[in-house]
Design a protein around this nucleic acid. Structure first.
Lengths: 143, 143
DNA sequence: AAAAATTAGTTGATACATCAACTATGAGAC
DNA sequence: GTCTCATAGTTGATGTATCAACTAATTTTT
């Protein structure tokens, strides 16, 4: 009855996650963006003016973390925060000119990153990978 | 030519990783261990007296992080550090009595965690999941 | 309208991943 | 033996994830 605490699907998923992040970060370094900041920017390139709360919901991230990432992006000069006049609790996030221009280079870059991750896999394999990952997700039942 | 920066295999793997970690942490909370601390303990339950460097290598973790995790485990009273007399640069890590006893409860717990993660999947599906994850790994080429 | 509950966001704390700079020790070349 | 290089570990910094406690504003209840 051997058991392999260091070599199981959970650990493998964690390792692959870190390696993907490392790769993505290396591809984004030139734009002064990290993988997670890039997700926020990607949202804003599609729907500018959404609130921090919407960002947190869509990215399934903790609102505390979103507050801090937004702060970092603001420091970098890519976004602008504005209190919503209709609901003063809410903060709407807008792109700056720099932030908007950044998309021209980063969006094509993102497309090629996404393609590379599943390079050499058939549509069926990608679907199967998704299905099996969803099965694991269901098993640990965090939703 | 749509592109889905927020819904691709990379993001899914990241999400599943976080959910697995969250589940594992919930199962380990009673033992005052986190998922990563548990990996170090699991190593020590098998090979007591290995060095921090061996721990870092086997867990593929940065040595800086290992230093800090070892420090935390020492504070918790589960391990003991001892400078190697043959190589004074090296620190050997030993279990305390508490740390050794902890294994009696945690090891069975770990086995059931590992089983649960791939519950309801056939051997072939688990192998296919591994294979596809290794393919992604190869694609991002961080090794 | 006043009280109670909910919501948006902030701040603080802890943990992990990663990189860079550093110290101390050891090993190999000569 | 000394000089050079490599190795083990530490410390500091930044970024992300998560939880808890908190403020301020809004919505619901009564």
């Amino acid at each position: 009855m051997e058991y392999e605490p260091l070599d199981n699907i959970g650990v493998l998923i964690h390792t692959v996650d870190l390696e993907i992040t490392s790769y993505v970060n290396s591809q984004l370094a030139a734009f002064q963006l990290t993988s997670e900041q890039n997700l926020i920017m990607a949202l804003l390139w599609k729907h500018e003016g959404i609130s921090q709360n919407e960002i947190a919901t869509k990215l399934k991230k903790d609102k505390a973390g979103v507050t801090r990432m937004i702060f970092t992006l603001e420091k970098k000069g890519y976004i602008r925060r504005e209190t919503c006049p209709n609901d003063k609790r809410s903060v709407k996030v807008y792109l700056t000119e720099d932030g908007r221009k950044l998309g021209n280079d980063v969006i094509p870059n993102n497309k090629s990153i996404i393609q590379l991750i599943s390079k050499g896999m058939t549509k069926e394999e990608i679907l199967e990978l998704r299905r099996l990952l969803m099965k694991v997700r269901e098993n640990v039942g965090r939703s």
